[in-house]
């Protein structure tokens, strides 16, 4: 894995997540193994969650949720399945230290803590320039397209 050679980037992210513009809040999947992944987002001025040059709280939460969604999509794609739709079930201990600025890049690492009955429990950290911007725990419900 490297930032120069991501698994998936830009428009191709649409193969991994069901979200479409204007709510797409992820532009790179850098790395993924069984239980962890690393993702990124560079903040553009026209982002729907930007206000006064800052990327605001709902954008950060959505970015982490879509990081988990892209991870699930990548795992499904490796098995030859379409990207599943995931809903946020619960957000806990979401602490925001600072809001990223327009032009900055968020680097996020997601760790799956458990996966039971299509419910993923994960923890995530988002950094900007190496400094912690946000951290949280999240529960995601994955709707399996194959069984519906």
């Amino acid at each position: 894995m490297s930032k120069e050679n991501p698994i998936c980037q830009g428009e191709e992210m649409k193969n991994l997540i069901p979200q479409r513009d204007p709510i797409i809040q992820i532009d790179s999947l850098y790395n993924a193994d069984e239980t962890t992944c690393e993702t990124g987002l560079t903040i553009k001025e026209e982002n729907m969650f930007c206000e006064d040059g800052l990327f605001t709280e709902p954008g950060l939460i959505e970015h982490i949720a879509q990081s988990a969604s892209a991870f699930a999509g990548y795992t499904a794609m490796k098995k030859g399945r379409p990207a599943p739709i995931g809903y946020i079930g619960e957000v806990k201990k979401f602490k925001i230290t600072r809001l990223p600025l327009v032009g900055e890049t968020i680097d996020t690492s997601v760790q799956i803590i458990s996966e039971i009955n299509n419910i993923s429990l994960l923890s995530a950290e988002s950094k900007v320039n190496g400094f912690l911007a946000a951290s949280c725990q999240m529960k995601i419900f994955i709707k399996d397209e194959q069984t519906n």
């Binding site: 479409r20 709510i23 797409i24 709902p58 949720a65 957000v91």
Partner: peptide
């Protein structure tokens, strides 16, 4: 338009906002 195409549901984060 993007959440989700043809299946509009409120993004959880918009309701937090």
């Amino acid at each position: 338009e993007g959440h989700f195409p043809g299946m509009p549901v409120c993004p959880g984060v918009c309701n937090v906002e």
